[in-house]
């Protein structure tokens, strides 16, 4: 089975990991503060913004892919950047998909817990900065869950990256788009093999993340 692990497949795995990690990181950097801000901010039309954000959480990848395609196509508003069918285009599409997901999870968690955390911080005499730090620390589990969910979504995504990346060999071919291609060609065994690797990577990342999280919490559960 492992003879299937040739240079091309390894290249595809590396590109997928690079793309997923980069898009998850960028989306987290934007989505986490956005979710926290959305909870604490008061402005007219906030309910509408929250509803739009929740709708975007479930936006179909092909639609996001199409929007990015239209933006980046030669005659599109951002066509001059010549990013269509590149690695960067795939990352942009994924970031647009992940931001609402990460922001939405963080917003919901913050909405549920921030009042208690902030009340506690005030009664302890914490200043604004210390309260914000505490809020992020205390929402750590939920923020972690949001990032992992985003990572999982990025890892399994096909539609958007297929449209904006074009599934070009040695260039923009990711694991999921390769699986689709192999299935179309009838090379089911290779498709299954790649699928298993994808699952192993997702599992491995989850294990590492869980380990790091546990270590950070320094837990030693009592009864």
């Amino acid at each position: 089975m492992f003879e299937m692990l040739d240079t091309e497949i390894l290249g595809i795995i590396a590109l997928t990991l690079r793309m997923t990690l980069l898009s998850s990181a960028i989306s987290s950097v934007i989505g986490i503060p956005l979710g926290l801000w959305l909870d604490s901010a008061k402005f007219p039309g906030k309910k509408l913004v929250v509803t739009i954000s929740r709708t975007l959480m479930a936006s179909p990848p092909v639609v996001v892919g199409l929007v990015v395609y239209l933006l980046l196509m030669r005659n599109g508003p951002l066509g001059f950047m010549r990013l269509l069918f590149t690695f960067e285009a795939m990352v942009i599409a994924q970031v647009l998909l992940l931001i609402p997901i990460i922001c939405g999870i963080v917003y919901t968690a913050s909405q549920r817990n921030s009042e208690r955390i902030q009340t506690f911080a005030i009664t302890m005499g914490a200043n604004k900065r210390q309260t914000q730090i505490l809020l992020i620390k205390e929402l750590g589990n939920e923020i972690f869950f949001a990032v992992i969910t985003g990572f999982g979504r990025a890892m399994s995504e096909v539609g958007a990256i297929m449209i904006v990346g074009g599934n070009i060999r040695h260039h923009t071919r990711a694991m999921t788009t390769t699986i689709t291609l192999l299935r179309n060609r009838g090379e089911i065994n290779q498709a299954i093999f790649l699928g298993i690797i994808l699952m192993i990577i997702a599992f491995g990342v989850q294990i590492i993340a869980d380990f790091l999280r546990k270590r950070e919490r320094r837990t030693d559960e009592n009864y």
Partner: peptide
């Protein structure tokens, strides 16, 4: 400071 009926404890030791 204030002590509550349902205390808030940090996710820590």
């Amino acid at each position: 400071t204030m002590v509550f009926r349902k205390p808030y404890l940090l996710h820590d030791t």
